[in-house]
Simulated scan of single mutants.
Amino acid sequence: MTAGIDVPDRRGRTGLDRHGRDLTGNPRVRILDVRVLSCDWYVLRRTTFDYRHDDGHWSREQRETYDRGDGATLLLHDASRGTVLLTRQFRLPAYVNGHPDGMLIEAAAGLLDGDTAEEAIRREAAEETGRTVGTVEHVFDVYMSPGSVTERLHFFAAPYENTTAPAEGTRGVADEGEDIEVLELPFPEALAMIRRGEIVDAKTIMLLQWAALEGPFKHISRRTVPPPPRHRCSGDGAAPAHRPGC
């Protein structure tokens, strides 16, 4: 008897080896076998499949997929004050892969855990920042690491008011080991932190760039971007033909 297959694993799941066996959306893919390699908390599977290439020949392939469920993330913004609300917390995977201290600055986020994406992001915003979220705007849905991780992340944005600021201190769910610092940053400073390598979390960078291009700060960000340098031309002011821009 195998946990997660014949008998429940520690999260009460069975039949984890059947996930993905019945896919029929792509006629170039024939699923042959799914093996569960680990189901301690999330699920690691190895799938064997046949794949038909553009020239018509078939090849047998194997891929490992890591299933941690889908998630949601939220950019909290105050357009009137030109600020965003982010968090800082320790991330072990980043720490073991070269980040100096593992303390990443991020937008609020979490797994759905059976909730809808909007329900989940309201829950995470309350747990991580202490804010109760009103109307949310759906931004886009993204596969963050499609080569190996099944997760689809739902992106949202929502305004917050400074009058709803919670008491100072760290936040998060203590039973889950969370120790989260809340950061309120001017939006131009948050963008500058991306350029300086101080914000390196993908979902946060995507939300901040969306906010600059299409979101609540598109007018602010355009004003704060310095103009391109002007070319200097020698002589009496005439523009030589071989000097573009002069």
Rank of each mutant, 00 (worst) to 15 (best):
Glu181His: 06
Leu32Ser: 06
Gly177Met: 04
His77Asn: 09
Leu32Cys: 10
Tyr66Arg: 03
Cys246Gly: 06
Glu106Tyr: 03
Pro93Phe: 04
Asp179Ser: 01
Glu214Ala: 09
Met144Gln: 06
Arg195Trp: 12
His231Thr: 13
Val136Arg: 01
Phe156Met: 01
Asn97Trp: 05
Leu92Met: 09
Gly197Asp: 06
Leu183Phe: 05
Arg30Ser: 13
Asn26Glu: 14
Asp67Lys: 00
Val7Thr: 13
Val139Tyr: 07
Arg122Asp: 12
Ile5Ala: 00
Pro188Tyr: 01
Arg52Asp: 08
Arg60Gln: 14
Leu207Trp: 09
Tyr160Arg: 03
Arg18Pro: 13
Ala120Leu: 06
Ile31Leu: 14
Gln62Asp: 12
Ala79Arg: 09
Thr48Leu: 13
Leu23Ser: 10
Ile220Trp: 01
Gly177Leu: 04
Thr83Ala: 08
Ile121Pro: 00
Gly25Met: 07
Val136Tyr: 04
Asp115Trp: 06
Val136Met: 12
Ala190Gln: 03
Asp236Gly: 02
Glu151Lys: 00
Arg131Asp: 03
Leu32Glu: 15
Ala174Val: 13
Ser148Met: 11
Pro244Lys: 00
Lys203Ser: 15
Ala157Leu: 02
Tyr42Gln: 06
Thr83Gly: 06
Ala174Phe: 12
Ile31Ala: 09
Ser145Asn: 12
Glu118Ser: 09
Arg35Lys: 10
Gly15Pro: 14
Arg30Ile: 15
Thr132Phe: 03
Ala157Trp: 02
Asp22Cys: 07
Ala157Phe: 05
Val96Pro: 05
Leu104Thr: 06
Gly56Met: 01
Glu61Cys: 14
Phe217His: 04
Ser221Thr: 05
Pro216Met: 00
Pro146Val: 00
Asp22Val: 07
Ile121Leu: 14
Leu191Asp: 07
Leu92Ser: 07
His53Asp: 15
Ser148His: 09
Pro146Ile: 05
Glu214Gln: 10
Trp58Val: 15
Phe90Val: 01
Val136Asn: 04
Ala212Thr: 11
His99Glu: 04
Pro227Ile: 01
Arg123Ile: 14
Glu127Arg: 02
Lys203Cys: 12
Ala109Cys: 07
Gly20Asp: 12
Gly110Glu: 05
Trp58Asp: 14
Asp67Pro: 15
Tyr66Met: 06
Val34Asn: 15
His154Phe: 02
Ala3Glu: 14
Asp22Gln: 10
Asp55Glu: 13
Val200Cys: 09
Pro146Arg: 00
Pro226Gln: 00
Thr132Tyr: 01
Ala157Ile: 10
Asp33Phe: 02
Arg11Gly: 00
Gly235Cys: 10
Glu118Tyr: 00
Ala238Asn: 10
Ala165Ser: 11
Glu181Tyr: 03
Asp201Arg: 01
Gly215Lys: 05
Trp210Tyr: 12
Ala190Cys: 08
Thr129Lys: 07
Ala117His: 04
Leu213Ile: 11
Leu207Tyr: 01
Ala108Arg: 05
Met144Val: 11
Asn97Cys: 11
Ala211Gly: 09
Thr24Cys: 04
Gln89Ser: 12
Val84Asn: 00
